[in-house]
Design a protein around this nucleic acid. Sequence first.
DNA 1: CTGTTAGCGCATTCAT
DNA 2: ATGAATGCGCTAACAG
Lengths: 351, 351
Amino acid sequence: MIKPGSHPTLADVARKAGVGTTTVSRVINGGHRVSPHTLKRVHAVIEQLGYMPNQAARILKGERTKTIGLVVPSIADPFFSSCAEAAQEIARAHDSLLIVTVTNNDPHVEMENLNVLMRHRTDGLLLAPANYQSEALAEYLGRIATPVVTFDRPVPKTGVPSVVTDNYNGARLATEHLVSHGYKRILCLGGEPTLYTLRERLRGYRHAVEEHGLPVIIDMSVKDYKSAEYAIESHLATSQPPEAIFTLKNSTTIYAFETLQKLKVAIPKTIALLGFDDFELAATLRPSISVIQQPIEDLGRIAAEILFEQLLPAKKGKHLSGKKRQEQVKLETRLVLRHSCGCNPTQEQNG
Amino acid sequence: MIKPGSHPTLADVARKAGVGTTTVSRVINGGHRVSPHTLKRVHAVIEQLGYMPNQAARILKGERTKTIGLVVPSIADPFFSSCAEAAQEIARAHDSLLIVTVTNNDPHVEMENLNVLMRHRTDGLLLAPANYQSEALAEYLGRIATPVVTFDRPVPKTGVPSVVTDNYNGARLATEHLVSHGYKRILCLGGEPTLYTLRERLRGYRHAVEEHGLPVIIDMSVKDYKSAEYAIESHLATSQPPEAIFTLKNSTTIYAFETLQKLKVAIPKTIALLGFDDFELAATLRPSISVIQQPIEDLGRIAAEILFEQLLPAKKGKHLSGKKRQEQVKLETRLVLRHSCGCNPTQEQNG
DNA sequence: CTGTTAGCGCATTCAT
DNA sequence: ATGAATGCGCTAACAG
């Protein structure tokens, strides 16, 4: 070994094999135009030295880094980790690595992460923006050369392609369903009204109830279990308590369920429940919870696919991909009927 | 712009600012030993050009890549995604990026991932090995120069440090508790007996029941809901059906719960249930499920901390860290008593 | 304080 | 079929 502790280099291999560096380079890049004999010996030396090409040197030569960056609010969140898994799979299929960074929904941290990723020259970026409506982000994305695809939440006023769930129609679907059960007073429960997804869902709910001439009852004060409990208790104490609750997100649905359970309010008899976004044990709870299901893996998968689509043409030296894929992809939701909304479906697959 | 479409280089900045490359280099590395005036101008040019240092070039100079690799069976799995989140946080604190790869528990894919990561010269590796007992992996890890820390599962016969849950004692704790309730026939239910974690838990269960002179009833045939249902029905049909079930993992616990619920077997009256590993709605189900809880985030966090601990000394040029941290860290579990085991605890925090 | 210069490991002409 | 030489962008000696 020439430099103990360090990795052997292409030159080390060349020396040991008694050939030129060019030859070794050819060998590790497919072995074309190399005599079988040399090929064999070089391979042997590579094996023996445990040589692995240094990606950095290749990058420096202008090659792609074979990495893409993923920027999400959280990776512990099942929603984003599912997206991440799908994205990782696509990346792997394209011989690329996925670098994961988390923002905790903090625009400042997000910007920092983007900068670090740019320094590493990731070939592309997959982004679930922390702050819908951020001018700084829009400006930043317009400035950088790296292809970006956002998912779950778009960045408005930018040409950045995005893959999102059709939150608006999903919420409409949910609300319409509750209406069809005959419920008149439908409470829409949620939190963090600044989030794009929740705003869209809220809009869907509002339009649906308004169209049916029903009262708009919205409570966006839910931040945790406590606030959910407080909110629901307040609405129950009203002279005209709600007959159904449409919860805008996962955690809210669970808080609502727990609260109703604790207060011994019969679901769906006294109050029906329907939530946006499915969750693991929704079918196992009693009663089972009806939900609007969004194609989570598809979000990550399609976003990654679009990203790599933008990456490929560059290889051929083409100027721009001729037919630009539509700027925003909207994925449809699915209404999963279980018992909490008042339905009585036949047993689901998994209990 | 000198090269449209490409990133501006340090030399570009130097030229435009009318200074030498060294000066620019100094500026982007803290700005020490540079006159305030020059500093300001260079900063201005950097801003104007949108210059970002090329990480690859730095790496080539022998610097660290500021990246660590994470190799896990799945990132969609809440267990590993929680570890990943913790690891990401530590990485970020050390100004590093986390590259995530998933193996699907396939040793071949795992090896491939490791190779790719080595090519990218990640400073270190966090690994949850796919296959306990793999000779090839042990050999590989012994050969590479990069520091590695495994978590959740160790790689035996290797000096590779690992951070694992004390699965053995956790299972003992669980079993002892069921015994203390007076149950005599305790069924241990699980699957994939090749996994390190499950073997350890199985061992803990076995020792505990044997010590109490109780029958060892093990069924490792659970792979999915169907097989769980079949297994449980079989055991119920016995002349001496079990009085309690100890499930070895998350999903098995849920399958068991669903099956018992479907069969209208009263929990814990007819059969008690206690599972290894907590899950989100364990406290919300009725009855709530008692579990052995493992410190999931700690696994990822501590593994990452140990990794960076090994990385730091190299910076100072020291030969080896003097006091080697103990090779294997074992994290203790916690018994969380809810209703399914027969306990009647006071209400938990969150319902 | 500042500039010049020599590599880091590799792919790539251009010769041979 | 092979090799010598060049340069990618940057940092660190080493002058000034």
